[in-house]
Nucleic acid binder design. Sequence first.
DNA 1: ATAATTTTTTGTAATCAATACAATTATTTA
DNA 2: TAAATAATTGTATTGATTACAAAAAATTAT
Lengths: 135, 135
Amino acid sequence: MTESDFTSILSRHGIRPTQQRIAVYKYLVSNPSHPSADTIYRALSEQYPVFSRTTIYNSLNTLVEAGLVRTVNICPEEQRFDATIDDHGHFICEKCNGIFDFDLNPEVLDKLCPEGFKFRQGDVFFSGTCPDCSR
Amino acid sequence: MTESDFTSILSRHGIRPTQQRIAVYKYLVSNPSHPSADTIYRALSEQYPVFSRTTIYNSLNTLVEAGLVRTVNICPEEQRFDATIDDHGHFICEKCNGIFDFDLNPEVLDKLCPEGFKFRQGDVFFSGTCPDCSR
DNA sequence: ATAATTTTTTGTAATCAATACAATTATTTA
DNA sequence: TAAATAATTGTATTGATTACAAAAAATTAT
Ligand SMILES: [Mn+2]
Ligand SMILES: [Mn+2]
Ligand SMILES: [Zn+2]
Ligand SMILES: [Zn+2]
């Protein structure tokens, strides 16, 4: 993915492709580790020391509203962000703190949702031990 | 459930049945609406104006550690608490903000969890519209 | 092009849930 | 009954996030 690909994706989603938004979105696409706003800020600060923390928050909120990014509420202390927006589950390892994606059939989600309720988003979170940390 | 029932439940779980802890646990059992710490504090303040906010937090943490209460991370802004500890899913209605429980087969959870991962806890969250708010 | 308007960014201040801490009070043990 | 331990309380602090207003950048009108 080239810089101009990101530019056109942002444009197509109705938001102005500013340098800051492109950098945040590019970081999320390149780092599918579900980083926090602060992790993104510290990482981008190296390349773009002028970016402000507030702008990272603003950009993330704008990207979420545009539907390009979604939040992952697996850690109560801080929001995590994810550029993979299609339905999938998340597993957080209590030993290495890694957050792992796993496939989730949309039909399975449908089956889990109780009768009469109309869901817009479904999330499946597991916490436990990942294969590596299980030895 | 009488007062002394709560007392013995707390004792059996290895925590001292203080007036404050009993009141918090009793409130959670009687109000399965997944209240926040602050909601519990404001509600109990009427009957026990001397209880401090810190003690509500302390009691909740103690009850969670004892395995009598679990946290529900469905709202990123604040933790919610639940005295129903067996596996079940949660649906939050974006219109009325109600949080609804629904049954969740433990075997279904097992099937959702990816190969090689060992989960300690599984959570299923939906957000959308509840039957009442769907008209 | 230039001026006026709108949008975005920036830095700082404010918010707010949750925790840390130390003093007080209550309970248990010696 | 005294000493030790545990729990509660009020206040201070933390830390993520938002609010706000000024500055900068980009867009639109003249
Ligand atoms: Mn993900
Ligand atoms: Mn519940
Ligand atoms: Zn791990
Ligand atoms: Zn509703």
